[in-house]
Nucleic acid binder design. Structure first.
Lengths: 209, 209, 209, 209
DNA sequence: CATGAATGAGTATTCATTCAT
DNA sequence: CATGAATGAATACTCATTCAT
């Protein structure tokens, strides 16, 4: 049932130095990000990436030992970008709920806004890769930001903070599957609405539609 | 170079038991559900499904004309099962919030409980199929249950009911990617917690962890 | 490179008696004729034939031990029908050229008119069958009619009667690939024109278009 | 159930000689020509062609995007070659019948002589391809040569030039199914005989065999 | 560093054939 | 006699990966 993808043998050559083209490497990562985001990992071929990088498929293997490895890199870089965005967003704020609000908006913004990251965090369970663990670890690390934001929240005693966090992440990440740019809502609107729901949509004046 | 087409080898072992009729169809659907859920559509090969159904790959085509068609069937059946579960759960209840609570619990229960349905509702956007439209229509129809439950809710005027619904669905469907049976939480616990979050986790006595 | 199609093992059961359904057998042959003619041997599946005979695929094997064998039967019957048509057509005629004329018209008529035979005589060389030899033998036997008609013709000494015969057959059989029913020309027109060409299209009044 | 994808086995034997560049493309076209001619399009597998080109099946797809496309190429090249042969043959001649004679001989010569072209012109009607139209167009274009040669001929008023042309083509193309190299007749003999028949085999001194 | 060509296991699907009922 | 279900080899095509140049 498992698909080991037992590739990527020799992992010898990789020039840590930036002799001439770290550009090329960046181009490849950018292209791969874009394509993985749009078509998924399995739906993107090495040739697609190569073509989008202005290179032939064989050449990719100079830069990355395997497709899987390229995914790890893209994933990592994406998460780093998200972390930065989120941390910047909550930097000056101290009120716990407000901090969560801003983190949510930031997460949605980069998720839906830039192709770099979109959808990369989606179910790594689907990727039948040897290295899913690694992906999961990378992602869990990022999600700790939210864990600690939630820790600071005054919540009902019967509220499971673990589930609370994962539900928020679910609500946010799911947007990738339904949000259509150019529609009625801006990317930030989406984030605001999720933040609203999380706070409890009842409070305040109410309407029954 | 030769294509001998040598058939009819040994026909020894076959357990006489699971050889009936419409059972086979069910077995296949069950196996496919499980595998699509675990590995995604593209990540599941016809051979995988066949093997899991105790059948050879060619035999599947007696029961289903294509892999895509099998997906449609699995998807449809799953949604029908979910609809029933959810409708049963809210049957005798009239208080709007309570109805939503129970719908959420029911949705999570069947999503996480039986392999038949699990995770089928996930992002059809990724499936590179001609018939995605069909899948999406099937799913949208099911989601209308939630749309109407939410319509009955007294919500703040600035709360977008559309996003509200999709966020709840996101939170619920995302559980598929993190929930591990046998852990601290029961399937119903998960549902209750999501219902709690949706109501506004602040209300009531609070703790800061 | 060869595709032996090593099927048709046991050739045991076949009820020479007409217990109940020689009809069924006829139905199958008729359906097969029609389909082989329209779609070619490789382009026709046993299931197609079964469906067209109002039977399930497994049942065919009661009547014919293999698809190949069915082809032999169809081929044989078609040739027999053609022979009859041609022999009838030349029956009362004695003038050699006239006899050939009529044979040509008859051959074309049945070839293009009834689906039973059409195209069956076409290149058995294409069929990668063990039994092509058999087909060829059947066909050669039929073609002897033309050989003897040509023997009776007064031809130029430098005319190779062998090539002459095969060229006529080529011209006639090729019609299958271009003749469209319902067009300007009737089936008999086609035969007449070929007969005309064979006689030497120059003789008589001439035009240069 | 596992899909090990174990690659990179032994890479021992490879004759260093036929490893160049555009040669490979030619080799493939040659092999495909030969095989399509012998076994038909449907009767030839991509693996057959690959094997005959000294290559593995996957490698073909580097050179041609599909089997159908390979057929188009082979077909096109063959027709181009035939056109050249025929046009060269009739170049210096002005007498209309003589021009047709030479065209016929040339057509047969290349049809039966080189494997490149042989039989490719046969009934595309059978090919179950999307692009049959394309093939037919290619072929019709070639056949115009004969149409115009025939236009220049003084023929009986009741002779249909359309059927006349198709019958000649039928007689010529049919040779592919019966001509055996190395027999009594040379390739050119066959062409001469067909030309003779077309002129009217009666004319001149006659014998009755 | 990059290319172009090849590799070969993998994919979904088809289909003649078998056979217990 | 017929059916329904299964078989398994075959088919066209894809794609991550390798490697000599």
């Amino acid at each position: 049932m498992t698909k080991p993808l037992a590739r990527a043998k020799a992992r010898t050559k990789k020039p840590k130095s930036l002799r001439k083209g770290p550009d090329r490497r960046r181009q490849i990562i950018a292209a791969a990000s874009e394509l993985f985001a749009r078509n998924g990992f399995e739906g993107t071929s090495i040739r697609d990436i190569a073509a989008a990088s202005g290179v032939l498929s064989g050449s990719l293997y100079y830069h990355f030992p395997s497709k899987e490895d390229l995914l790890f890199t893209v994933h990592q870089e994406s998460l780093t970008a998200m972390r930065q965005e989120v941390e910047t967003a909550i930097a000056g704020i101290s009120e716990p709920w407000k901090r969560l609000d801003e983190a949510i908006v930031a997460h949605c913004r980069i998720l839906l806004g830039g192709s770099v990251t979109r959808a990369i965090l989606t179910p790594p369970r689907y990727y039948n890769l040897k290295g899913v663990r690694k992906l999961v670890r990378q992602r869990d690390e990022y999600e700790q930001i939210f864990a600690s934001l939630i820790d600071d929240l005054p919540l009902r005693a019967d509220c499971d903070r673990h589930v609370f966090r994962l539900s928020i992440l679910g609500a946010m990440n799911w947007t990738v599957f339904w949000y259509a740019a150019g529609g009625r809502l801006s990317v930030d609107d989406v984030g605001r609405q999720i933040a609203l729901m999380v706070r409890g949509a009842t409070s305040g004046a109410t309407t029954k539609r």
